[in-house]
Nucleic acid binder design. Structure first.
Lengths: 146, 146
DNA sequence: GGCATATAGTTGTTTATGCAACTACTCGAA
DNA sequence: TTCGAGTAGTTGCATAAACAACTATATGCC
């Protein structure tokens, strides 16, 4: 029963996600200082589109672990910013594919650098093997609960 | 240069905190099913008050890593729910101490059980030594960025 | 004492979130 | 063929978040 060995008194920092909140906040700050006028949440949607342009909104829900209304509104705001545009799928008219605009594509290089900077700031003093274990644990937790 | 060995392509799940989002969502669900009509964020404030009743709002900011307006409104809502009450400090009239009501105290036992259940669900299949390493990494990340 | 500075808390604004309820479209089976 | 179930997306509502700007109180230095 490995779980019983876990100190319950420290469950709190897990549950509140202080570390990921801190990372998100720092990334937001770095984006702003780097001149990128987007939110971290918008960046997280763009991130998946840079890897795979034309994803449906449902795909973006799965990729970002947000519900459909959240993605609807994030895409709304990204469209207002002229960074993406919705295109109705011809095969299935229920589906909106979300495509990057030229302006949206242009943000990739600059903001990925800022994201890498943020991550390096976060991971100062953490050995690579422990990072791997941490990622592994977080992945299992996610799979257990998703 | 340990950080350079970190695969940048996987930075995303770190930054979005999918694991902690999943935990929070599950805790919210468990609270609801257990009949506790509070949000996870409200629970996280109560959690610190159960450990240390009478904290100031600023103390709660530090403990929960939220800014002052967030705590103002969380305490507003907890006060509406009759779970806490603000008491102006006599020594320093700028300070509100936040005290649990009887009703607020009553929630501890039941919801801590639900929180432990949630954590056990999250950590199925994760060996205790890896949990410790994960906590250690998240603590360093938090300290690097806070 | 009195002013500058710092700290505690509140309010306004924008963005994001989750859940529930809704519309629109697709697909399979009677 | 059509009707019922399922899927994609939107809208309404309540809560929460960050940042900026504000008030009120405390403190330290002259």
């Amino acid at each position: 029963m490995p779980n019983n060995q876990f100190k319950k008194g420290e469950l709190y920092s897990f549950m509140t996600g202080k570390a990921s909140t801190a990372i998100a906040r720092r990334l937001q700050k770095n984006l702003k200082q780097g001149g990128a006028e987007i939110t971290v949440e918008q960046w997280s949607v763009l991130y998946h589109l840079w890897k795979n342009d034309g994803l449906s909104q449902q795909d973006l829900c799965n990729a970002t672990f947000r519900d459909k209304p959240s993605i609807t509104r994030l895409v709304d705001n990204l469209e207002k910013l002229k960074l993406v545009k919705r295109v109705a799928s011809k095969n299935d008219r229920r589906i909106n594919q979300v495509f990057l605009t030229e302006q949206g594509k242009k943000l990739e290089e600059e903001t990925m650098l800022l994201a890498n900077t943020t991550l390096n700031e976060a991971l100062i003093g953490v050995p690579a093997d422990k990072i791997d274990i941490c990622k592994e644990v977080l992945q299992i937790v996610y799979d257990n609960l998703k």
